[in-house]
Every structure is written in C-alpha cells, then in structure tokens.
Deep mutational scan, measured.
Amino acid sequence: NRRVIAMPSVRKWAREKGVDIRLVQGTGKNGRVLKEDIDAFLAG
C-alpha cells in the first residue's frame, strides 16, 4: 500500500473519473501523479 504523491485537485479528478489513483504511474517530480497521468491511464 504505497503512498501516492498527488495534488488534491488531481485526487479529486481521479475520484470523478472512477480511477484508483494507486494504480496510476506518476510521471511528475518524485513520481507525482499528474492530471495527464490520469487521462493517459484512462486512455489505456
């Protein structure tokens, strides 16, 4: 159960899209999950 680094707005975006943010690979600094990462995860 790893800790995910993400801005609150990104966490909210993931929740709205029904995405478990822990499954998303972050591409930002220090592995931070970005809004673009959520979109890419949804795109496959």
Rank of each mutant, 00 (worst) to 15 (best):
K29P: 14
L23M: 13
T27F: 03
T27P: 00
R22K: 11
E16I: 12
A6R: 03
P8L: 08
I5F: 07
E36D: 10
M7A: 15
K12Q: 12
D20M: 04
G18C: 15
D39A: 07
L34F: 06
M7H: 15
V24N: 00
V24D: 00
R3P: 11
N1L: 10
N1H: 14
G31E: 04
D20R: 04
V4M: 06
R15Q: 14
R15H: 14
E16F: 12
E36M: 10
I21A: 02
K35A: 07
G18W: 04
V4S: 05
T27D: 02
V24R: 01
K29I: 12
M7V: 12
I38N: 00
W13I: 15
V24A: 03
K29Y: 10
L23D: 10
K35Y: 06
R11P: 13
I38A: 01
V19H: 02
G31H: 06
P8T: 08
G44L: 14
I5Y: 08
R32D: 05
D20A: 05
N1F: 05
G18F: 05
G44V: 14
W13D: 15
E36R: 14
E36P: 07
I38L: 05
R22N: 12
R3C: 15
A43H: 09
G44D: 14
G28L: 00
V33H: 01
M7T: 15
T27H: 06
R15I: 14
E16S: 12
A40Q: 10
V4Y: 05
V10G: 02
W13A: 15
G44S: 14
G31L: 04
E16G: 06
G28M: 01
N30L: 09
R32W: 08
N1K: 14
V33P: 02
E36T: 11
I21S: 00
W13E: 15
G28S: 03
K17C: 15
N1Q: 13
I5P: 05
E16C: 15
E16R: 10
F41Q: 04
Q25I: 14
I38W: 02
V4C: 08
L23K: 12
V10K: 02
R11F: 12
G31S: 05
V19F: 03
I21D: 00
I21P: 03
V33F: 01
V24L: 06
R32Q: 13
I38P: 01
P8N: 09
R11W: 14
D37T: 01
M7I: 10
I21W: 05
L23W: 11
E36Q: 12
D39P: 01
G31A: 05
A6L: 04
S9W: 10
D37Y: 02
R2L: 11
I21E: 00
K17F: 08
R32A: 13
K17E: 05
R3N: 10
F41M: 06
K12R: 14
F41V: 07
Q25T: 14
S9C: 15
F41L: 07
V19E: 01
R2V: 11
K17V: 13
N30Q: 09
L23E: 11
P8Y: 07
D37Q: 01
I38T: 00
D39L: 09
G26A: 07
N1Y: 05
G18V: 03
R11Q: 08
P8R: 14
L34D: 04
L42S: 07
S9Y: 09
W13S: 15
V24S: 00
V4A: 06
V19D: 00
W13P: 11
G44W: 13
R32M: 13
T27I: 02
G28Y: 00
K17H: 15
R3Q: 12
N1A: 13
L23F: 12
I5Q: 08
F41G: 02
V24H: 00
G44T: 14
K12V: 06
